[in-house]
Nucleic acid binder design. Sequence first.
RNA 1: CGGGGCGUAGCGCAGUCUGGCAGCGCACUUGCUUUGGGAGCAAGGGGUCGUGAGUUCAAAUCUCACCGCCCCGACCA
Length: 476
Amino acid sequence: MENRITRKEENFSQWYIDVILKAKLADYAPVKGCMVIRPNGYILWENIQKNLDRMFKESGHVNAYFPLLIPESFIQKESEHMEGFSPECAVVTYGGGKKLKEPLIVRPTSETMIWSMYARWITSYRDLPLLINQWCNIVRWELRPRLFLRTSEFLWQEGHTAHETYEEADKEALKMLGIYKKFVEEYMAIPVYKGQKSDSERFAGALQTYTIEALMQDGKALQAGTSHNLGQNFARAFNVKFATREGGEDYVWATSWGVSTRLIGALIMAHGDNKGIIIPPKLASLIAVIIPIYYSAKERSRVLSYIQSLYLNLKNDFNVKIDDREEYRPSYKFNEWELQGIPLRIEVGPKDVEKKQAILVRRDTGKKIILPFNEVSLRFSTLLNEIQKNLFEKAKRFKEENTFKVDNLDDFQKVIDDKGGFIYAHWCGSPECEAKIKSLTKATIRCIPFHNEKEEGKCIYCGGKSSQRVLFAKAY
RNA sequence: CGGGGCGUAGCGCAGUCUGGCAGCGCACUUGCUUUGGGAGCAAGGGGUCGUGAGUUCAAAUCUCACCGCCCCGACCA
């Protein structure tokens, strides 16, 4: 009866921490704000990387690596960018035992480093588009860290592309956002809203920031991925000009886009339950665990040899593991693998050997399915697809049931206080109203959704004219 | 940076008020019995009581200072 995690309903934050620590996804590091990503957590990141990397490459991007340390003067070249990032920068001032002539910034993001290099590589429209991605770590000093969601160092991917025109850059930014949405929905089984950030929520130095927003089970929104149309701001700052097709000269148009290990936090909070995390099959490395049950030594060998042949039927197509540890009882193993979110469990005891069958148990629903031996491998894919689909559908239903249309500030406040979730409300477009709503309710504009229906209405705060609703929520 | 809480075995805690042998549960090790939803018994190992100073015959306990961590808020992927 030990090793229990705090119930989700009781204290969601504590539940989140308990799940991460007990499922061995991560642990606190000796330095405040830093975390160790343990093998169970890292393999999730590896699977995120593997799939996204393939999608990036299929869309024409290539990987490279840029340095961790950036000269301080680079950050200062784009004023909006500097204002946005300097408060959270870590700075290296000593090297080789001597004070450095110019301090070095530990990258909070690589726009400046990358554009300083693009200046050397781009001279003509023939060099464009340039489509580079890098997988790396970055440092942003955090005052209030939270495992996976906000740590001072985290892992991410940052794409940086260079284009001939505004339109082409904008198309790229939207395309990458589409890839993020596809990945997050299809692989992570987390439904998202896609849209554009308001000016106050925009990336420092961008013309436009696009975002996908997911809803966590506690009713708070989480930004799951962003892409930016950077216009010519960085090209100007780093003097990146190219010879145009027309024989003229112009600054290059830029985009950047990223997702981070924060996605693992999203996964935990979107699907997890009081037993632990739930990994969607398409993101899981270990798909199923086979657990033997026996009472005597004789049964033990019969059960184990039966399991061996079951395993051989599956192992070529699926990553399946036999948990034949003798120091733990089956019930202990059930709980342990459920905590770690493995999509399927296969139980085999003497009765099953007798009847030439196996019991499959779904992690998502807990339902038991008894299958004849021969059908186990045949039904496996279908079952995994059903789990994947169910997780997405369940999360989608939750998101839809927790998206509310609201027409006045009182109702707005009520929804935020009572249940949270997304609020679809009219806004006049002014940053002042946005800020007021934020300070009153703690909710921010998550995005101005794409494909928004035009609808005449009144700003929920000032009553001014509004032509569309935007999505509000309390956010991580 | 503000508010709250906590630092005692790997983890969770009691002991602190009222100073007097450093304890409990889990985990770990060994053995036996067990095994279809977190097994039982027996034996065993493990401590800079966050750090430093002070008071005292005697400090986990009292005093002062410091450090660290977590939670809640303002900033953020």
